[in-house]
């Protein structure tokens, strides 16, 4: 884990503790830039731009381990950044634990939205695969923050 700078030992096992430390110190968290694999999506964050990008398939062996840094990043951002947050998702297949994590993530956004913070989500999908849009609709059901499902025409 090398997502956390600022003298955090690289081998520190509890990323959530590291995040809490950073939060206490009032320092913005280092951005994430996790490369996609065949079973996990690309995860990228940009604190200055207020942007999170997730793209690809998600059926990792341990979804909680993979996504915890992202959940920590988002909660730190929402707590401290004081500026809008935008999520751009191009997710195709999600396994059950990834679905669970997305719902937790959207819950965080919902809470922030209810507290008057500016959050929005854009879910991009290949226009040839309408099923992905149906799934995004299911996710959107309980969300009141801006949640757009956008078809992309691909060559």
């Amino acid at each position: 884990m090398t997502f956390f700078a600022y003298n955090q030992p690289a081998s520190r096992p509890q990323t959530s503790t590291a995040a809490a430390d950073l939060q206490r110190e009032g320092i913005s968290m280092q951005d994430l830039n996790i490369i996609a694999t065949t079973s996990s999506p690309a995860i990228a964050t940009d604190w200055n731009e207020g942007r999170v990008i997730l793209a690809g398939d998600s059926y990792p062996e341990n979804a909680f381990e993979l996504f915890q840094p992202l959940l920590d990043w988002v909660s730190a951002y929402l707590a401290q950044a004081g500026q809008p947050l935008r999520l751009e998702l191009s997710l195709l297949y999600l396994n059950t634990s990834s679905i669970r994590i997305m719902m937790d993530l959207f819950d965080q956004l919902e809470v922030a939205h209810q507290a008057g913070k500016s959050v929005r989500l854009q879910w991009f999908y290949d226009a040839r695969n309408e099923r992905v849009a149906d799934l995004a609709e299911e996710f959107r059901e309980d969300c009141t923050f801006p949640f757009d499902i956008i078809a992309e025409e691909r060559a």
Partner: peptide, 19 residues
């Protein structure tokens, strides 16, 4: 409710993979 939603979405993904 959350669990039911996860199951519903997960079933849809499975259906998508099956097709």
């Amino acid at each position: 409710r959350q669990l039911e939603k996860i199951i519903r979405i997960s079933d849809q993904y499975q259906q998508m993979l099956r097709e």
